[in-house]
Amino acid sequence: MMKTVFKRTPTLKDCPTHYCPGCGHGIAHRLIAEIIDELDIRDRTIGIAPVGCAVLAYDYLDVDMVEVAHGRPPAVATGMKRTNPDKIIFSYQGDGDLASIGAAEILHAGHRGEQITVVFINNAVYGMTGGQMAPTTMLDQVTATTPKGRSAAEQGYPLQVSELLATLPGTIYIERCALSSVAQIRKTKKAIKHAFDLQLEGADGMSMVEVLSPCPTYWRMSPTKAMEWLENNMTKVFPLGRLKG
């Protein structure tokens, strides 16, 4: 007799992925899909895809989704949630989208205390456009636009958005997690689920989970090495744990 040891959760579509080998987006998508199914909220969830590698997130997540201009998901989420308080609105944003071009939008959505859930994928690099520097790129990290490595004098320090947002009265829950090991992935799922739970309860403010995620392609490493680099280097600048709530 065969035993089912793994079953695809229904909200995750059965299709080939466009993500690179070792990319964290696939894991993050699956966690979100599982959470939506576990909370049984597929029929009232609306997701917002960013501009970046995850722009096609709606090809994998079988919920109502919108794809919006670069950096603007928190503004779009505001428009949705304010007019549809009964719906569950989440945005899924990368580091270029959220921490660079959309810095004003995330800051003010948090500032206003919008009752939305934000999943912030930080892989320290722009993936979709070819590996350029992100605000969260590490010092000395070589990217397409920092050929000699990021220097604090030239490009500033990696931007710690979660720490920044945690100072705002309008945010109720901020946690930083990582996709670097099975144990960390479990923690990540727990955190994202909590962020959805808060919105379901009608908690008064914005919740965000920052997810440190590997990009082996533009880190120019093997997937295994990328996991190690994330755990050993990224978490030093972006310490894991609950920052608020």
Binding site: I46, A75, G79, M80, T83
Partner: peptide, 9 residues
């Protein structure tokens, strides 16, 4: 973009 969000719903 808030208009975009509300309109999309």
């Amino acid at each position: 973009n808030m208009v975009f969000g509300a309109s999309a719903t």
